[in-house]
């Protein structure tokens, strides 16, 4: 299985380098100018990257013909998909570490309890997008990702504008999360991990029935 990881690292070298350069720019900017406002966009970019990385890899294998090779090799299709999910977790952990660095560089405006939330957000997005990528392609992944970002934001904004969910209510919701985060985090992690496993099973089912 390590051979698959090597191959994914070699093929994504350029993208990984580009990601690191972008992050270095963000972190450097935040550290030098100490602008906490830049942390939001930085985290947005990093969460997007963490969420999309395994889908890029899945899509790349589809387009370059690698699936034909690997599915005719001794490696089972289950292991091929398992490796993609392990890479997903790995990329989430790396992004998680970078989030910590970015937060520290910006003077720690983000509370530490938000770390597991961001980690879960990345895993949640991957869990949704991996089967979508395999079944419907990378273009649909972008659509789904945008829906995942803008649908809740738009809904929240609309409810707020309509006066249904007021600023006070939003603030109260954030306060509730903040006060109960120690008990909510394990539940959230378990739910997201369960979703991740379910997503693996769905993706594996799709992949096992794919013909090349």
């Amino acid at each position: 299985m390590l051979g698959l990881l090597y191959k994914d690292i070699y093929t994504a070298k350029k993208e990984l380098l580009l990601t690191l350069v972008m992050l270095a720019l963000f972190v450097g900017y935040n550290a030098i100018l100490g602008q906490a406002e830049m942390l939001g966009p930085t985290l947005g970019v990093m969460v997007s990257l963490g969420a999309m990385t395994p889908t890029y890899s899945l899509n790349y294998d589809k387009t370059c013909g690698w699936n034909k090779f690997v599915c005719a090799s001794p490696i089972s299709r289950t292991k091929v998909i398992l490796m993609k999910y392990l890479e997903g977790i790995l990329s989430s952990l790396v992004i998680g570490l970078l989030v910590v660095v970015c937060n520290l560089a910006a003077g720690s405006p983000m509370p530490s309890w938000a770390y597991p939330l961001l980690f879960c957000t990345i895993l949640f997005a991957q869990a949704i997008m991996m089967p979508v990528c395999l079944r419907l392609g990378q273009n649909m992944v972008v659509v789904v990702f945008l829906l995942m970002v803008f649908l809740p934001t738009g809904l929240l904004f609309s409810l707020n504008k309509a006066g249904i969910w007021t600023d006070e209510a939003i603030r109260a919701a954030f306060d509730f999360v903040e006060h109960h985060i120690s008990s909510l985090t394990p539940v959230l992690v378990l739910v997201v991990l369960a979703l991740y496993v379910l997503s693996f099973l769905v993706t594996r089912h799709i992949y096992r029935h794919m013909e090349f």
Binding site: K7, T11, K13, K14, Y60, C64, G65, K68, F69
Partner: peptide, 8 residues
Amino acid sequence: SGFFPPEM
């Protein structure tokens, strides 16, 4: 058709 990643 080749089936190895073109980037490698």
